[in-house]
Design a binder for these strands. Structure first.
Ligand SMILES: [Zn+2]
Ligand SMILES: [Zn+2]
Ligand SMILES: [Zn+2]
Ligand SMILES: [Zn+2]
Lengths: 145, 145
DNA sequence: ATGAGAATGGAAACGGTTTCCATTATAATC
DNA sequence: GATTATAATGGAAACCGTTTCCATTCTCAT
């Protein structure tokens, strides 16, 4: 299992390990507060304090085991990725569920930008907002206010 | 002039008009606090309170006269756009200056997403981070920490 | 066992934004 | 012009996710 081997070959402290496992079990984009709440609902023991969760997310992010996603509501969310990889999402503004897109198609674009603007691309943010299939069928038609 | 005609044909209240004019004069991505500071440095009279600036930005955004840009530092920035249009940026993480990209190339992508995932695209966020030409030449080489 | 450095938890501080409310401007009505 | 109703404004407080601070606990080499 990926997480276990990661724990063995790097020095993940208890907080980081626990948070990484929680993220895996939750299985979707989660904020620090989401994770904190999940611990309070599911695991009475070993629940790290909110501060520790923030620290763990930071260090896991620096280890490239997570990616951060900002959906613009002031709460940063995280998810497990293959080390060094990343992807983007379709995010439903109704239910906040997200669909992972297969692969990032912006790599080629980056190199063209570098040539054209003399700009060294380090990272990028791309998220697509809308209404998912489920929510579309719930609300047959948006009220034309 | 675009702003003036906008004021005439719509009912922009004083706060919104003043903030819109400030944004035009500042001429770059600005947060509410940026604008507030600019007023304190440049215009002793007519400087709207911070609360009013937030309200003005909200309503100008709803009128599609502005676009909001989130560079992930917890401070939302705004800029004037042609009504209904939008564009993306190359943002230098060193000096925070931004280069406006010509046109959004994601429109075509949106329709393919709709078909493939049954997802109705409403909006998207795309910002590209890196080091601009000026900052690259300032620091010839990044320290390999 | 002992001591140094890292990790943790709890509370306080921080900072951008939002809310609340009293005051003031704007506009319609008489 | 006086009198309302409605909208806009400013100042302060509240809000909330996050960061900082510091005392305590853990880890581990000596
Ligand atoms: Zn949905
Ligand atoms: Zn990408
Ligand atoms: Zn720069
Ligand atoms: Zn676009």
């Amino acid at each position: 299992m990926m997480i276990q081997s990661t724990l063995n070959q790097q020095r993940l402290n208890k907080g980081s390990y626990t948070v990484l496992r929680a993220l895996k079990e939750i299985g979707k984009l989660s904020s620090a507060q989401d994770i904190h709440l999940w611990f309070r609902l599911n695991e009475t023991a070993d629940a790290p304090a909110l501060t520790t969760i923030y620290r763990a997310l930071d260090s896991l992010l620096k280890m490239n085991l997570l990616q951060a996603v900002d959906i613009g509501d002031g709460e940063r969310r995280y998810e497990i990725v293959e080390p060094g990889e990343h992807h983007h999402h379709l995010i439903c503004t109704d239910c906040l569920e997200s669909i992972h897109l297969e692969k990032c198609f912006l790599e080629a674009f980056a190199s063209s930008v570098e040539q054209r603007h003399g700009f060294v691309v380090r990272s990028h943010v791309l998220e697509i907002f809308g209404i998912c299939r489920k929510c579309s069928s719930k609300k047959p038609k948006a009220p034309s206010v």
